[in-house]
Design a protein around this nucleic acid. Structure first.
Lengths: 197, 197
DNA sequence: CCTACCGATCGGTAGG
DNA sequence: CCTACCGATCGGTAGG
């Protein structure tokens, strides 16, 4: 009844907050700033949300859930590790691209979560990363990937690239998320160097 | 007379501030927090520094200068583009590794600079990135690199990986910055995939 | 969703 | 480097 097109007032508050947190950072964003963006008084925000941090929590955990779901789809599939890795990368990028603002907040502001939320968030993240590490490990086992690569470095490089995307990706550019994921995968898997022939 | 071993009080203040800014973020760090870390009263900080932002300014611009100097050394040298790229990457990592705390602040907190400092900082950064882009361009021209790579994507991936390093690199690990740079270069240039033979 | 307001904390200054 | 203090702003509540 009340989805995507017709955002509830609470969802509107959260979306505007995401924009604000992205621009100024969570700590530097005041509830008065947020209220102004919505055209209401600061005190009125509290009829929709319990606290400033509640907004951050829903932004971070909602996206974490989407990332997890995307990866689970990929893990179900058969096929070579390089293909799984490619699909995992594309999935991750698609989730981010659906809401780049939320993705930027997820990335840069999660550390302002208080306990126990912060702990819980970091556990979800390490789990997600480890599942990508497993895919790389699988590729090494099957001989698709070099046996001497540093798995930790590989996976950190991958996530650095992925997570930095909200900072430079232009959603109005002509490159679509899926192609971006394809190209990024190709670069990580095959490298910059021209292949011998 | 008064270098590295014997930090001036001002340098001590800036170092402690860097630790604090890294942990909590610039906006969430109060001058009272900083004073406490130094064992003095908040008001006393102002005999050493002019303002909170002055600290951020010196952290950001000092490191920017070191990055620029490192890249200039590399640009002077002859040799294939892949070699220049490798040396540029190692240089960048070495600069960061010399002070990971400052590097993390440089990366994550520069946006809290006020104008005109922010503008100036961003200009330095875009210039630095473009010079890496030129090296990649050179590699494409000479046929070392694939002709169909997306230069912007390549350079963004590179800097994502580089700049995210302060978040996960453990200075007590047995891998030295130079080796890390070597491995990262190899991964970007040659990719994860096992080479045919 | 508003008015009116709270105690806490902020960056910074005066004057020593 | 300290005491004493400033005006501004913070997240949030009471009561309608």
């Amino acid at each position: 009844m009340d989805t995507s097109v017709n955002l509830s007032r609470k969802e509107q508050v959260i979306r505007k907050a995401a924009e604000l947190f992205r621009e100024k950072g969570y700590a530097a964003s005041s509830m008065r700033d947020l209220a102004q963006k919505l055209g209401i008084e600061a005190a009125s925000l509290y009829s929709h949300i319990k606290s400033k941090e509640e907004i951050l929590q829903s932004l971070c955990f909602d996206l974490a859930t989407e990332f997890r779901k995307s990866l689970e789809e990929v893990e179900k599939q058969k096929g070579p590790a390089s293909e799984k890795l490619r699909k995992g990368i594309i999935g991750h990028i698609q989730v981010m691209a659906k809401d780049l603002t939320a993705a930027a907040v997820f990335m840069n502001e999660h550390r302002h979560l208080s306990q126990p939320y912060l702990r819980q968030f970091l556990l979800l993240r390490i789990n997600y990363i480890n599942r990508f590490k497993d895919i790389i490990e699988e590729g090494i086992q099957t001989g698709e990937f070099k046996e001497n690569i540093d798995k930790k470095l590989a996976v950190m490089t991958l996530f650095s690239s992925l997570n930095w995307m909200p900072q430079w990706y232009d959603p109005h550019s002509n490159i679509v998320p899926q192609d971006l994921g394809q190209q990024l995968s190709d670069m990580l898997i095959n490298g910059l160097k021209r292949q011998k022939h």
